[in-house]
Nucleic acid binder design. Structure first.
Lengths: 76, 76, 76, 76
DNA sequence: GTGGTCTAGACCACA
DNA sequence: GTGGTCTAGACCACG
């Protein structure tokens, strides 16, 4: 899975879309843990800040919840 | 009694404040023993490392004293 | 350089001794930066917590100084 | 699985025998990790000192190897 | 890409 | 059954 650096949509937003899609199709289960920031960084080939931005967006939207030292979880 | 994971103050520092307050109001008496690390861990819902960090801070400030195998005591 | 897991001296204390020795023999210069926590972790084959414990000991003794996001420096 | 507190063989030695048997029959694989001290303590209903004594015996005999913070492993 | 905080859980040493 | 050490690996804040 790779993102497209050329189109106008910001990378972090493309990433949000991918993550939301994966939550909806069950790749990431509700109540389950998302991959770590480093994993996502590597999988999508983006900077860590981008990953953090995307995850914080999910948290702000109430889709996910993050716990220090444990990871980011999909809300049920 | 619970700590607040949202505000910027580190959990261990919040814990220090609570312990100091309890020493000052007499909940933990001078010369008496503080609850064990495991007790505090359970009461405040944090990891043992966080509890230890807070207790070591009290020791560094000369407020408490710790003895291996016995516990942590409030200095008179 | 490796540490000895068998003897009773804690690993973090052995690490303190090595770092102090390197400061004294000029391997790490006064005013210069120490290797990052991750580097030391790899060089000595210990966990990052152990490295941090050793570095914080140097800071507590006034031998080094640490700046968030930049590194740990030997005091002149 | 329970041990027999009545017979003259010390509990820790009975425990050693059980562990060795389990290594030989493959319940605990060579190179694999033994259950934690607390697990064994609960499974066999013995004190922690007994478990530690038995494990240290395995280590002394070169059957197992223990690493602080990780567990006790069966040597290949 | 550094240091800072935190979690979870193991074994170690003391009493 | 306490505190002491250690591992492994996560997210956070700074630069």
């Amino acid at each position: 899975m790779t993102l497209d650096p050329d189109i106008s949509t910001p990378l972090w937003r493309q990433l949000v879309d991918v993550l939301v899609a994966r939550i909806e199709d069950g790749t990431y289960r509700k109540g389950g843990r998302l991959p770590s920031e480093v994993s996502l960084q590597q999988e999508f080939g983006v900077a860590r800040g981008t990953v953090r931005h995307a995850l914080q967006h999910l948290v702000a939207e109430g889709i996910a919840e993050t716990t220090n030292g444990k990871g980011t979880y999909v809300k049920p």
